[in-house]
Amino acid sequence: MIRTLLALDGALVRGALAFVLGTQDDIDVVAELDRSEQIGPAMWSQRPDVAIVDLDLYGAGRPPERQAPPGHRCPVLVLADPRRSHALREALRAPGRTVGFLGHHVAPQRVVDAVRRLFRGELVVDAELVAAALTRRNPLTGREVEVLTVAAEGCPVVEIAAKLALSPGTVRNHLSRIAGKAGARTRIEAVRIARDAGWI
């Protein structure tokens, strides 16, 4: 059995993936986590063969594969959003790590296959994800960068407008276009995506 640890932000996604993995004859989910500080203790207590970790949790502290007990090999499959190119580039650059990368949007069967491949010591890399990390350029205009940079300080629309000598309506239009380009549902999410991608 391939003992598998899941460390994913979001109970629904984590639960769905745990269910899919649990239906496999050769995979056993031994831990389901939602915080980075839980990874180290679970590595020691459960000794997983493979860990599946969200990019946010992977980059939040010591890499999971370095938190395993001495002599215990545990490759890590990182699930990442292609829009988060800066954070993904940092993870891809890290030397000497046994890590695989897949987009978080892939079909569950690809995750199942990736777990088996990592367990066998094979390389797992999503070519589209790597291409996005290496080639994605800033889609924001100069003015949109200015608006989002001020918005990132927590300023309301009226204050952003006053600081940049714009009308509140123009600021709202910029924020709406920024959210669309970033694929974000909220301004806070747009700021996070832009920072992770190195746009602001």
Results as ranks from 00 to 15, higher is better:
V124P: 00
A31M: 10
V130W: 03
R3M: 05
Q46A: 15
L175W: 01
L92Y: 08
G96N: 14
A11L: 11
E159N: 05
P168F: 05
P95T: 06
T135H: 12
V171W: 00
V29C: 02
P139N: 10
V53K: 04
G169V: 13
A127T: 10
L77E: 07
E37Y: 15
T4A: 14
W44E: 11
E159A: 11
D196M: 02
C74M: 14
D49H: 15
R84N: 14
R137K: 14
I178P: 11
P108I: 08
V20Q: 06
T186Y: 01
M1S: 07
L175G: 02
A68S: 11
V191F: 00
T135V: 08
R120W: 07
H86D: 12
G198S: 06
I52V: 15
L12E: 14
T4E: 02
A42I: 05
D26W: 13
G40V: 10
E90Q: 08
A114C: 07
A161M: 03
I200Y: 01
N173P: 00
T149Q: 08
G15L: 03
A182I: 03
H174F: 08
V112R: 09
L166F: 07
H105W: 14
D196T: 02
P69Q: 08
A60R: 13
D34M: 05
A18N: 09
A197Q: 02
Q38K: 08
R84T: 02
R62Y: 04
R110A: 12
L118W: 09
P139E: 13
R84M: 06
R172Y: 08
L6R: 06
K163H: 14
Y58Q: 04
L148T: 14
N173T: 09
